[in-house]
Write a protein that binds this DNA or RNA. Structure first.
Length: 929
DNA sequence: GACATTCCCTTTTTT
DNA sequence: AGGGAATGTC
């Protein structure tokens, strides 16, 4: 059992007062939160469903979940029902809440950054973009394409901050209103809308007579079920998110917030430090506990970090003093502040140092034996990763493995340029000879003569007068057809297997870019659609600035490679050795930017503390604090002038100030001459969550899983998309109402379909046809199973199966009902008319059975697949221990294959063309080992 | 020292 | 692109 400090123990035991944990870097807060939650679970009358824990990223959620599982398993010996506890992002929670209590919410699609931007530009007037006035001299209103990113920022400030709308120009409010109307009309949630809608419900008055039944039900749920709320990274909460939290605890649920005001680095997207600074004033009888012991870093690092934090004005931070509590020894020469002649010399030294650190003995925990440091123990943190070029060149030259995070330069790759060239050729922007040239450079083809076949397809595709519905001018379809004609797949790509794999990532990401574009532009006039697509691909502000360089870091395993990333992305992580180069003036601290900004649209006075969005010295100081405190032992801060750049010739003030510290040395004494061990990377396996749809591919053909979820290939959009989902959502509402005692009747079928069926890509005739088919299917369901509605036990039941340490499977069971035979059946619906959803397999259903058992502690009796079509086949099987054991071991194998990046597939893909759009690509699967 | 001209341009999560 | 910083000019 691990030992806790007095402060940690106090935090773990404080379950009743509003609790504020000030957790400095490396203070073991995840462990403390997990332990505290385990303790809450041990209380009488507390069920897992009473607890809600928020993190900022899915990754952090997966880690927290894993930690809690481990502790609960150790302490209570049983994790039954843990899936009922919400651990995840606020966005996920809000969406869940809406989907559970507002039936129509199911049909809403979620816009990502890219698709939101595409929508705003495509509907540039209706989105309010080009009607939005500005005070910038250069623009009376915002411009299409040029300012859409800025407009997105404006929209999020208007909706997520405490804006005084009396001070906002009318034209701006009108723009916001048209945008919101556009989203509703097109049935989309953007990231703001999810939370804003949930907040609107949470803030409603329970005594309001106008509330609908679901709204009442939602408030009742919050009031009676939510008893403990935990918010991690509280310093990064923005005003709207703070409202969500307030809404959850308004009836007295216990609130625990955990954060470090010194690590507020996302204020430019709305994080409001005052949330944490004034927490104690805003809640009654707050208990504040400072977790100031740093278990991560050596004394030198801790002291240096503290010095940096103390540069901040007192008024901007909570008083605290980080103390070193680690077993990590500091030695003179561990922390360096070095100046170099030029960036190449700097890069060269970093590469040397990384080499020299290899095999250096290092002890991860007090009781562990030393191991030799390896590549993955080193990280290079940049203020902007665009500065990494000299280092990347150097590492590549030396053959040092590295992964870069945060560099959007996928479109610079010659392979991608060749793909972009195909579409530029189609719209007549380049000639056939140009295209041939691009393909020559890209080296994608095993047989260059095949390019002619590809060009023929492109030429035919570019005939936009060939008739047919607009939907048939499908970009994704064309792309996959061309790859097939060119005979491009993993088996045929020239070069070593590692190169083929990387190229597959690029081809997959391009497929993702097509999906993003086509999600918004599917039904546009073909000629204009292809032109808009080319603009999307070639405009530096659009696709080229969104898609990151392809790499093989899937998130399922940690490769033994040097990490190159931004300080922002390094938050929450640690490495034995950290490098922070490029400490130049104007770069770190970053100079504030000129040009048009959100405050040319929204008056600064209208936004409380609006200045934070623009950033300043304090923000940069906090960022520097984060960078330094990532290091466990070795830290090298450095800079070099760039002669050619006027503004990059001087050192950063940060560098100058740090150089004077007693813990720092300004000349490299070299590493101590100690005996090196065999380098052995820390085998840290990230916690992963596999969704149910992903699992299907893993079980059937691991290589198709890799194609879809790792490389990123997407099948073409089908015009009937949304049919299966609409049916499913209508059924979900029926069952939920049945559970609430509000039995739906057959007379409501048309109404149900009207409300749930959303087929955004269907042409009018198809839409009618799908509508009729849905009505027929529901009618049939009423005829055949209407009686069963009263025997509904659960609808849309969230399940979660931990199949191996750190591997969780997530899913929702359509229906759990009690049969006439009094058995419990797990039911999944199926419709053969549904273009997207392929049949639910027996294996998948067995996983549901596992999940049901983990959730309730009881075994289900049957698994059923219920076909909604008249001539459909059904599946109806008994659940046996043998069935469960079989699936359990099957999943364990699959999970270990993911970890080992082993996605082979033996079956013959050349035969499944008829239903698998990616069949051709799958024929390139490496053979089973 | 005061003013004019030239140079340069970020960070990113959320189903 | 507009504004801050560096450099140029008197």
């Amino acid at each position: 059992m691990s030992m806790y400090t007095v402060a940690q123990q106090a935090a773990i035991e404080e379950l009743d007062a509003p609790l504020q944990l000030i957790a400095c870097a490396g203070s073991g807060k995840t462990q403390v939160i997990s332990q505290r939650i385990s303790r809450i679970l041990g209380r009488p009358d507390v069920a897992p469903g009473n607890i809600v824990a928020f993190t900022f990223t899915e990754k952090a959620a997966a880690e927290l979940k894993e930690r809690i599982h481990r502790i609960v398993r150790e302490e209570h010996g049983d994790v039954t029902g843990l899936a009922e506890m919400y651990i995840g992002t606020m966005h996920g929670y809000a969406l869940n809440l809406l989907q559970t209590y507002v039936p129509e919410a199911f049909k809403y699609g979620v816009l990502t950054d890219v698709t939101q931007r595409l929508l705003i530009d495509r509907e540039s007037t209706k989105s309010g973009l080009t009607t939005c006035p500005t005070t910038a001299p250069s623009r009376p209103t915002l411009w299409r394409y040029v300012d859409s990113k800025l407009y997105m920022q404006v929209l999020s400030i208007l909706q997520e901050d405490q804006v005084d709308f009396d001070l906002v120009p009318e034209g701006v409010s009108d723009s916001l209103q048209s945008y919101v109307e556009l989203l509703t009309r097109r049935k989309y949630f953007d990231y703001t809308a999810m939370i804003a809608n949930a907040v609107a419900f949470l803030e409603s008055d329970p005594d309001d007579d106008d509330l609908t039944i679901p709204e009442r039900e939602l408030l009742r749920h919050i009031r009676t079920d939510i008893k403990y709320v935990v918010v991690d990274e509280y310093q990064d909460v923005n005003p709207l998110q703070e409202k969500l939290i307030a809404g959850l605890v308004r009836w007295g649920a216990n609130l625990c917030v955990v954060g470090d005001d010194d690590q507020t680095i996302y204020q430019w997207r709305g994080s409001e430090v005052s949330n944490i600074l004034t927490f104690a004033n805003r809640h009654e009888a707050v208990r504040t506990i400072e977790l100031s012991d740093n278990f991560r870093s050596s004394k030198g690092i801790v002291r240096l970090g503290r010095t940096i934090a103390e540069w901040l004005p007192d008024a901007e931070r909570l008083p605290k003093a980080m103390e070193y509590a680690s077993h990590q020894q500091w030695a003179l020469g561990d922390i360096l502040a070095l100046e170099f002649q030029d960036p190449d010399a700097e890069a060269n030294w970093i590469a040397d140092r990384i080499h020299a650190l290899r095999g250096m003995p290092f002890t991860d925990t007090p009781d562990a034996s030393p191991r030799g440091l390896s590549w993955s123990d080193c990280a290079v943190l940049f203020r902007t990763v665009k500065d990494a070029e000299p280092l990347v060149d150097e590492l590549r030259r030396r053959g040092v493995p590295y992964i870069i995070k945060g560099l959007a330069r996928l479109f610079e790759a010659p392979e991608i340029q060749a793909l972009v060239g195909m579409f530029r050729f189609m719209v007549g922007e380049i000639t056939e000879a140009d295209l041939v040239g691009f393909f020559d450079t890209a080296d994608l083809l095993a047989d260059k003569n095949l390019l002619r076949r590809g060009i023929r397809i492109l030429t035919e595709g570019a005939n936009f007068d060939r008739g047919g519905r607009w939907g048939t001018y499908n970009i994704q379809r064309l792309y996959l057809d061309v790859l097939e004609a060119l005979d491009v797949n993993e088996a045929t790509i020239p070069g070593a297997p590692a190169r083929a794999e990387l190229v597959m990532y690029q081809l997959g990401k391009f497929s993702q870019a097509i999906s993003d574009f086509e999600a918004i532009y599917f039904a546009s006039d073909p000629a204009r659609k292809y032109e808009a697509f080319v603009r999307f691909l070639t405009d530096e502000r659009q696709a080229p600035s969104y898609y990151e360089e392809a790499d093989d870091d899937s998130g399922y395993a940690t490769p033994d490679a040097v990490t190159i990333t931004t300080v922002h992305r390094s938050k929450g992580m640690q490495w034995p050795a950290v490098f922070v180069p490029c400490l130049r003036k104007n770069r770190f601290p970053m100079r504030t930017m000129g040009g048009i900004n959100p405050f040319h649209v929204i008056p600064v006075e209208a936004v409380p503390n609006g200045a934070r969005y623009r950033g300043g010295l304090s923000e940069e100081t906090r960022l520097f604090y984060v960078a330094v405190t990532r290091a466990q032992k070795y830290l090298a801060l450095s800079w070099a002038p760039i002669a050619a750049n006027q503004q990059a010739r001087r050192q950063s003030d940060f560098f100058r100030d740090i150089s004077g510290s007693d813990w720092v040395v300004t000349a490299d004494p070299g590493l101590p001459d100690r005996e090196r061990l065999e380098p052995s990377p820390k085998s840290e396996t990230p916690a992963i969550t596999i969704s149910f749809s992903e699992l299907k591919y893993l079980l059937e053909c691991p290589y198709s899983f890799k194609l879809r979820f790792m490389y990123g290939f997407n099948p073409p959009i089908h015009e009937a998309l949304g049919y299966g989902k609409g049916l499913h959502d209508a059924l979900a509402e029926m069952h939920k109402r049945a559970l609430a005692g509000d039995l739906p009747s057959k007379a409501e079928v048309v109404d149900l379909v009207d409300r749930h069926l959303h087929t955004p890509y269907a042409y009018p005739a198809l839409r009618e046809q799908l509508h009729a088919a849905a009505v027929k299917a529901l009618d049939r369901y009423f005829d055949e199973h209407g009686e069963d509605l009263t025997r509904t036990e659960h609808s849309e039941k969230q399940i979660e199966v931990v199949v191996a340490p750190g591997v969780t499977i997530d899913g929702r069971i359509d229906l759990i009902k009690r049969l006439e035979t009094d058995e419990i059946a797990i039911v999944d619906f199926k419709s053969t008319e549904d273009a997207q959803k392929t049949s639910m397999t027996r294996d998948q259903l067995s996983v549901y059975a596992l999940g049901y058992e983990e959730l309730t502690g009881h075994s289900a009796d049957r698994i059923q697949v219920l076909n909604l079509d008249d001539k459909g086949d059904h599946l109806n099987e008994a659940v046996s221990p043998a069935l469960l054991a079989a699936i359990q071991s099957k999943i364990e194998i699959v999970a270990s294959d993911i970890r080992g990046n082993h996605f082979a597939c033996g079956h013959d893909h050349s035969r499944d063309t008829a239903y698998n759009d990616l069949a051709w690509l799958a024929t390139g699967a490496p053979a089973e080992a």
